[in-house]
Write a protein that binds this DNA or RNA. Sequence first.
DNA 1: GTAATAGTGTCTTTCAGACAGTATGAC
DNA 2: GTCATACTGTCTGAAAGACACTATTAC
Lengths: 303, 303
Amino acid sequence: MSAALTQTELIAVLVSIIDYMPYVMTIHKGSTLPSGSFEPGHQSLQAGLRAWIHQQTRYPVGFLEQLYTFADQDRIYNQPQVRTISISYLGLVRHQNFSLNETEWHGWYEYFPWENELKPAVKNIRETMVGALYEWQSRKTEDTEQTKRRIEFLFGLNGYAWNEDLILQRYELLYEAGMISEAGNRYLERKDFAGQGMFADHRRILATAIARLRAQIKYKALVFELMPTEFTLLQLQKTIERIIGRSLHKSNFRRMIEQQNLIEETGHITDQYRGRPAKLFRYQKSIVDARAMSGSKLPLVRN
Amino acid sequence: MSAALTQTELIAVLVSIIDYMPYVMTIHKGSTLPSGSFEPGHQSLQAGLRAWIHQQTRYPVGFLEQLYTFADQDRIYNQPQVRTISISYLGLVRHQNFSLNETEWHGWYEYFPWENELKPAVKNIRETMVGALYEWQSRKTEDTEQTKRRIEFLFGLNGYAWNEDLILQRYELLYEAGMISEAGNRYLERKDFAGQGMFADHRRILATAIARLRAQIKYKALVFELMPTEFTLLQLQKTIERIIGRSLHKSNFRRMIEQQNLIEETGHITDQYRGRPAKLFRYQKSIVDARAMSGSKLPLVRN
DNA sequence: GTAATAGTGTCTTTCAGACAGTATGAC
DNA sequence: GTCATACTGTCTGAAAGACACTATTAC
């Protein structure tokens, strides 16, 4: 084993919920994910990252999970002799005002407009994208049939159901088709359709993080890392809906939550302008700490 | 960002099926997972690993997926000034005779005897382990209630169902409890219960790989990367059973396979000593290539 | 009373899990 | 016919999905 000159960088996808909507922490006006170099003094990767986040945001992270390690040749952009290995992490933090001036929070769907089914415009966006994808597919010389099936599968066409967990695969397909600005957008002109671009492969890393969160929220009690200490059932439902990008069925959602025994009433109720006040809940710490609870599915609404 | 002297190593968990049983490729008499250093000349991590595996085994890998990146302080065992970053991968290969003399294949369950429910002795093993775990738990001074629930949850006691995907979490619990030789086994004397030890944290990496495979086999068409070109339904069922470590229900398994449209008859049948010959199948390449097919659950048998 | 939001009851369809059965080969 | 292994038909109970309903506040 030879020791090569490499630098190791930690990239953090820090997610928080503001007004039931998922946001990601960025620097440089939303173009870049925060990152820092990994110092040999750190005990472990996780410890290094936690220390760094605390220093930057003055706020402790709850859930922190490794996403993926990149070391592609074309990621080297500063020094040709030095290889950069990037280890990306997903972190969940409860929102509060962060002091750092460079820091900004941006909504997920600025970068992936086609992923939010809750917005009415999404239908139009998806149709336009699929049209452009089919055009690209018809010009291909090989794997045309396979590519057609891939488009149908990823965009929920022709008998396939839409699967929100496949956000990364959809991004990669759009990238291949040249419809992503980082790859030199040639087919899709409207930026509000193709989404905001990011530095290097940071948007790909963000897609990986969203995919992980969308997949895990279905069988782990992750949401509670993002919720305030007291919340109503509808607030919980709205938060999950905006993370997975589609609407849930109200009474079935409540039934599911009840079955899991994850939360308990606080005894308090909301104070609101009009309508019936809602009961407030907190999650049962003892159960959530066990993590990785048994399987549960979200009751989806078909449109 | 400062450039620190680090070496990057790739660790491969190569899995293959021999006689319906999952095996892992090792060196040094089963104690070590194969690894190699990552050369800066390589295009990407995946490319580097594929090249290395091909050179070592003369056989192309099908499925290859990144598992986890480790860089803990205590992983440094040779040069104190050099930090080692280990990136682990799971690879699936169809078995054939490998030429390398150092190379050996070992059955998964030599390292995790408690994970194979198909062996009758497992009941005894699990009971002994749970007994030792409870003893350890009762001696703890803090988190005793929480630890008790953790034991119950991970070992399928007191209302919880056994979940084969939690192999890594079980290993970590046993490690914490000092029942794993790598951590200085103090509580469990019988080696045929605690399993074969491995170099450094290699057994932990193997547990990560098995967990990933067990989880993904339920919703992706991964098995076919391990099967021969022609196989019977019972061979397919047996293979999956031994990967997840528990038995499946025959007719329900067939119904599930049929629903998915993943395989087709070849028209051939088996040639056997006695009993009715079985139809041979092959998988439909076009569909498997699409990968990440829609959700499917395995029909389990309760004992 | 109306408007607005919170929360519940129950029907239907689907499918996992379990049981039993039949089919086809060698002898 | 027996034995052994391969394969199929169908019942049941739980739960996902869908729809309509009632409850509690402010005015």
